[in-house]
Design a binder for these strands. Structure first.
Length: 895
RNA sequence: GGGCGAAUAGCUCAGCCGGUUCAGAGCGCCUGCCUUACACGCAGGAUGUCGGGGGUUCGAAUCCCUCUUCGCCCACCA
């Protein structure tokens, strides 16, 4: 406890020691989540009271925010817990596998960072390794085929429970629909996973001749190759141009097939030619029209998006884009290509690999969303659910109102398999949906085969708020922690995850999982691009931690983040982004070091004990810093509660640096050194206020605050600031007069320093100063802090009163207090006259506009009385200030 | 095509339910200091038609309209 502290804060040594220390005591959870990305799903829950906690050193924005909030809540005596999103074993495993594959030279997917593997959860690592063993056993990627690796985690049961329950309620169904298909990943995707992107494309106007050769109909398309699967052309029933043609046949070029002209209200007569080619197997809208008109569906593409056997032989096996060119060429050759126009439209891309989505007709499992969305919407509208920032609620509403059924089956080789078994016996065809594995058909006893697909990873994610607590079991954890309070998440997964958790929570548990949804911004580079590994514009948090410390990283992220806005960081200027946090940590370190080195033995308490410091022992500066400290407690607590973490950080920063370090510590030095009496009180106040500030800052900068806090007297070896109580505001600490009086002291010192700098007085040289004013009360304040002023302004003498000398530097404070520093020969009188004149001039112009304002009858009549009074006071003060300045000029004999 | 957000000092941003010498902070820059907690520091200083235009008001960085630029989200018009 008494070993000397290094003069410079060394984050890496201190942080790693604390990290280990916390871990030993179960106060720390070392996992960084998959990739440390913003997508890491953690959940903050905090029902009262009773304290248990999992702590975390976050590297990313999401982790950091969550950790800050958890620490804050916990220090306030609320139970705060992070539940790691183990459901993301799916994604994590996938990433690990990819990583390991790459190491083995088996490149099939994009590869994550080296550091990533070291950071993922242990069980994921093991799972990944096990999977890799199996993959290697299977052989080369070409031979892999469809092999399943079902994740054996706690969530499997919950996932099955949810699936089967929804099935029994008629909310899960299997359907033959157009889904988003990725020809590279060879899987279906949900609407949310198909990212729309504005793309410059073309629109081709193609002529389809009437079968009897009496003319043609022009259709427009952005995907000409799909015409190979056309089975009709549709027009609006009221479209006069086409009404006579309805029911007649067209001769489909290229494939030479007869297709009918049908009438359907879905067609917009105003768009293009008003006639639409219908490809039921390759377009969702066409599929619906096809259904209404009983049109056949011709699937002309293979899963890899090559042209299938259903098309003419010369197209078979062609890539879809090659086929497009070939179709267009054939139309052109036949004189049936009317025209081509540039066309900007949204094209779906696979969220994972970026491949252009191909709408594809297939059998998939869906969740009926409307019945789930309705209550979720209701809970927002009745105010149960709140978004921070509020405007995110609009996004939520909009999405739920337009919600479509959720395609949950995926043709991937990882994840939770769909718990459905099909009977393979001749003539049975029974489908069994079951919570437990099915070995034989419950109907006929025949052999069964489990559905080949796995579930969308978000199907397990949306259960996390309760599945992670043991559901469907009614565990104590579930009873104790559900529902939670706050969810911290990134806006980009509002639909993927957040809204769905709310729906599932309401459906399966009957309550919203969280009442507060805090959506933070995104970390971007200076061009406002999202930081990502693939763009290479990211900042490696581990590098920052190593160079500047975790506290510096956290401070930079938090202080740069106002509610709902993005954090912009320059990857090419780590110094500019993170040095301030490091500097602040070092400042704290040294302030703490100073205080610690000046106390020995017990420090008297400020109140509540026989040996407590008596009020009459307190200096003005003591009262001032106590009042400022109290104000900071209020400000910071309020900011944390409102999720305004940057404001909390700013409040404590200002208190610690500008008030405590710059002024208070300077003020108490003589007392601590024993040069003047009052050392006891100074020590007590310094320790007390510094302690409060450490606690206020701890959620944001846990390491440096902990490192210092535990060294203060009276702390047992196992005490941790992370379980210390949150400071409470104290009405007795409010002290407006101390604030005002010390403010005057600061201004006087500032004025003298300004004059010294102005006239280049050498730093070591002392000067005399005169401070005068009509009022007496402030003089009393200055008298009380005479020593402080002498020291901080480097004075040989401070006279509270007028000087008989004239030549020197003058300053007038806003309240009219005049400060005079006689400088004799050192002063340039002309320059001083100029300075004073300019200052008086500035006040004159202010007075001018003020006079105008006050003589404006409208203002006096309409503005609130207190505003008018305030403006009058202002004018009086300025006027006095100016008079004093002009008086000084006269004294100096200015022209 | 719809909706939303942003535009303030060279950079990153705060201020914005109108009215405290309201134009601020940090970084950067300039000047002077290794003053025994801290040069990752101390003291002092310069810097802005608050994106353009219009309006409401006694009064606008703050409210309304419009334009420009940037960004985000949503969208089955082929």
């Amino acid at each position: 406890m008494t070993e000397p502290l290094a003069p410079q804060y060394n984050p890496s040594a201190i942080e790693s020691a604390l990290y280990a220390w916390w871990q030993e005591r179960g106060l720390f959870s070392p996992d960084a989540g998959p990739g440390g990305s913003a997508a890491t799903p953690y959940v903050v829950m905090m029902p009262p009271p009773n304290v248990t906690a999992v702590l975390h050193m976050g590297h990313g924005l999401n982790n950091t925010v969550q950790d800050v909030l958890v620490r804050f809540e916990r220090m306030r005596g609320r139970r705060a817990l992070w539940v790691p999103g183990t459901d993301h074993a799916g994604i994590a495993t996938q990433n690990v596998v990819e990583r390991l594959l790459a190491k083995e030279g088996l490149t099939r997917f994009d590869v994550g960072r080296e550091a990533f593997v070291e950071r993922v959860w242990g069980y994921v690592r093991e799972t990944g390794a096990a999977i890799l063993e199996q993959l290697k056993a299977i052989g080369s990627s070409a031979d892999w085929g469809r092999t399943y690796f079902t994740l054996d985690d706690d969530l499997s049961r919950a996932v099955r429970e949810a699936f089967v329950t929804l099935y029994e309620e008629g909310l899960v169904y299997r359907g033959h629909y157009i889904i988003n298909w990725c020809p590279r990943c060879l899987t279906a995707l949900s609407n949310e996973e198909a990212e729309k992107e504005e793309t410059d494309g073309k629109i081709w106007h193609l002529r389809y001749p009437l079968a009897d050769g009496t003319g043609h109909v022009t259709v427009a398309t952005t995907r000409p190759e799909t015409m190979l699967g056309d089975t009709a052309v549709a027009v609006h029933p009221d479209d006069e141009r086409y009404r006579p043609l309805i029911g007649r046949a067209l001769r489909l070029p290229v494939v030479d097939r007869a297709v009918p002209i049908v009438a359907d209200h879905a067609v917009d007569p105003a768009f293009g030619s008003g006639a639409v080619k219908i490809t039921p197997a390759h377009d969702p809208a066409d599929f619906e029209i096809g259904r209404r008109h009983n049109l056949p569906s011709i699937d002309v593409m293979t899963p890899e998006a090559r042209i299938s056997l259903a098309a003419p032989e010369r197209f078979q096996g062609l890539d879809r884009f090659d086929a497009r060119a070939r179709v267009v060429a054939e139309f052109e050759a036949a004189g049936l290509l009317e025209r081509v126009e540039p066309h900007r439209h949204a094209v779906g891309h696979c969220y994972r690999c970026g491949t252009v989505i191909e709408p594809r007709l297939s059998d998939q499992w869906f969740v009926r969303m409307e019945p789930l969305a309705r209550p979720a919407l209701e809970k927002y509208r009745d105010g149960t659910l709140r978004f921070i920032p509020e405007r995110r609620g609009d996004d939520y509403t909009q999405w739920l109102e337009g919600i479509r059924d959720w395609c949950i089956s995926r043709q991937l080789w990882w994840g939770h398999r769909i718990p459905v078994w099909y009977c393979e016996a001749e003539g049975c065809a029974r489908t069994t949906v079951s919570r437990s594995d099915v070995g034989a058909c419950p109907g006929c006893g025949g052999p069964v085969k489990q559905d080949e697909d796995v579930l969308d990873t978000w199907f397990s994610s949306w259960l996390v708020p309760f599945s992670s607590l043991g559901w469907p079991e009614r565990t104590p954890d579930l009873a104790g922690f559900y529902p939670g309070h706050t969810l911290v998440s990134a806006p980009e997964i509002l639909f993927f995850w957040v809204a769905r958790m709310i729906m599932s929570g309401l459906h399966f548990m009957g309550e919203v999982p969280y009442t507060h949804i805090y959506l933070h911004g995104t970390v971007r580079d200076t061009q406002h691009r999202k930081m990502s590994k693939s763009l290479g514009n990211g900042i490696d948090p581990l590098e920052v931690v190593e160079r500047y410390g975790a506290d510096a990283l956290r401070y930079s992220l938090v202080s740069g983040m106002s509610v709902g806005t993005d954090v912009i960081l320059d990857p090419d200027d780590l110094e500019g982004s993170f040095a301030p946090g490091r500097n602040f940590a070092n400042k704290l370190w040294n302030a703490g070091r100073f205080i610690l080195s000046n106390i020995e033995g017990p420090v008297r308490p400020l109140a509540g004990a026989p040996d407590a410091v008596r009020p009459d022992e307190l200096a003005l500066a003591d009262r001032w810093i106590i009042a400022r400290c109290d104000a900071t407690v209020r400000e910071a607590t309020d900011a944390y509660e409102k999720f305004r973490l940057n404001e909390a950080a700013g409040a404590v920063y200002r208190f610690l640096w500008s008030d405590l370090a710059d002024w208070y510590i300077e003020q108490i030095k003589p007392r601590l050194y024993g040069d003047v009496p009052g050392g006891d009180a100074a020590r007590a106040v310094a320790v007390q206020t510094f302690d409060v500030a450490l606690r206020l800052l701890h959620p944001i900068m846990p390491f440096v605050t902990e490192a210092l806090w535990r060294r203060f007297p009276g702390r047992t070896a196992n005490a941790s600031i992370s379980v210390a109580h949150w400071p409470r505001p104290d009405a007795r600490a409010e002290d407006a007069s101390a604030i005002a009086e010390f403010d005057l002291v600061q201004q006087v010192v500032g004025a003298i320093r300004g004059i010294r700098a102005e006239y280049g007085v050498p730093p070591g040289q002392t000067v005399r100063a005169y401070v005068s004013q009509d009022g007496r009360a402030v003089h009393a304040a200055l008298e009380r802090e005479r020593g402080t002023i002498l020291r901080l302004a480097k004075l040989s003498e401070l006279v509270l009163g007028e000087s008989t000398e004239r030549i020197g530097g003058h300053a007038v404070l806003p309240d009219g207090t005049a400060v005079f520093v006689p400088l004799g020969d050192a002063i340039d009188v002309d320059r001083e006259c100029g300075r004073l004149g300019a200052e008086a001039e500035r006040l004159s112009s202010l007075l001018g506009s003020q006079e105008k304002k006050l003589s404006n009858e409208q203002f006096v009549a309409r503005a609130p009385a207190d505003v008018v009074a305030r403006e009058r006071d202002k004018m009086a003060a300025w006027s006095e200030q100016r008079d004093v300045l002009l008086g000084k000029r006269k004294l100096l004999g200015c022209g």
